[in-house]
């Protein structure tokens, strides 16, 4: 029996959602993905982290029940995809099962730093070998020292060790590279070659700029971005609902509220409708021309 055949029927049946959100998503006016910040704490402390995440961060995490409710309601409203990020989501012991359940509603991309797959932990990750799930792992340079300068000791070694094993386990892996330089720089070619050698195809290698928010803003790194430059994906965190996955940033220990939509996260229709109303009230802008994703 294949993984696809074993999936609940709901997965393969397109959502019959109707209403303003479904119409806006179908027309392309509203992005289809809903992001979920499962938690804020992390085993790393990257120099450009949007949320100042570290082992010492306040957890501020969603529950599994909340994440499942977001997934169910996102599908009902007409959204078409989910993303889970943090912090490091896989620090939550119940996260793999929850993501698997969420994937019964909509396709999920799970962002992880890729450092928690040592030893037997790779077996836990293998349950994410599902056609509706992709893991997105960060890798910023083909040079271990340069990568680890931003992301922490041994990060490079952990990632290049984990990715082929995940791929071999049947897990779809995407690599995300965050760079302070041009997105099309030939200096990234060796990294592209490395990513291919790990078993990840070019279309699953995302290269994006550092966004000057959170800790990156304190260090004056990255590109300045107004709301219209940031994809208006509905983003849910313990602190509320935000415009875009770059919304719930933290600097000097204080949450940025400029992209806050509502403190109410459920029912999801409350922040979804607030997002749509806000989008329609803003003047036209650059619409993500900075390549932020």
């Amino acid at each position: 029996m294949t993984m696809v055949a074993s999936r609940p029927a709901a997965v393969t049946v397109p959502s019959a959602a109707s209403g303003p959100i479904a119409e806006a998503v179908a027309s392309g006016e509203l992005p289809g993905r809903v992001w979920i910040y499962s938690n804020y704490h992390c085993n790393l402390a990257c120099s450009y982290c949007l949320t100042e995440s570290s082992p010492r961060s306040e957890r501020r995490q969603l529950t599994a029940e909340q994440m499942l409710a977001v997934a169910e309601q996102a599908r009902s409203l007409g959204f078409t995809a989910l993303g889970v990020t943090g912090g490091e989501p896989l620090l939550l012991p119940w996260l793999p099962e929850t993501v698997l359940a969420m994937a019964h509603q909509l396709p999920v991309v799970l962002l992880t730093n890729g450092t928690l797959f040592a030893g037997d932990r790779i077996k836990r990750a293998a349950m994410l070998a599902d056609p509706n799930i992709a893991l997105q792992i960060s890798l910023d340079s083909h040079l271990p020292d340069l990568n680890d300068m931003a992301r922490g000791p041994d990060n490079f070694a952990n990632v290049v060790s984990a990715v082929p094993r995940l791929v071999a386990s049947g897990v779809r892996v995407r690599i995300a590279t965050t760079t302070a330089g041009p997105l099309d720089s030939p200096l990234l070619d060796p990294l592209r070659d490395l990513v291919r050698s790990l078993g990840v195809c070019d279309e699953d290698h995302v290269i994006r700029p550092i966004v000057r928010r959170g800790r990156a803003d304190e260090r004056e790194l990255g590109v300045l971005a107004a709301a219209r430059d940031i994809p208006s994906e509905l983003t849910i965190a313990a602190d509320g609902a935000f415009w875009g996955s770059f919304g719930p940033t933290v600097r000097s220990g204080r949450l940025d509220t400029d992209l806050l939509l509502t403190r109410t996260i459920l029912p999801l229709s409350v922040p979804a409708n607030a997002l749509l109303a806000t989008m329609r009230g803003l003047p036209e802008g650059a619409d993500a021309s900075l390549g932020i994703r």
Binding site: D258, L259, T262
Partner: peptide
């Protein structure tokens, strides 16, 4: 500068006063 995107209309004519500035933490 810190007002939520859903509260910006209340700041369009300048400082909206402390009641609005406090309520803006829960913009809905």
């Amino acid at each position: 500068g810190r007002a939520p995107i859903t509260a910006q209309q209340y700041y369009a004519e300048g400082d909206p006063g402390p009641i609005v500035a406090a309520l803006a933490s829960v913009p809905e």
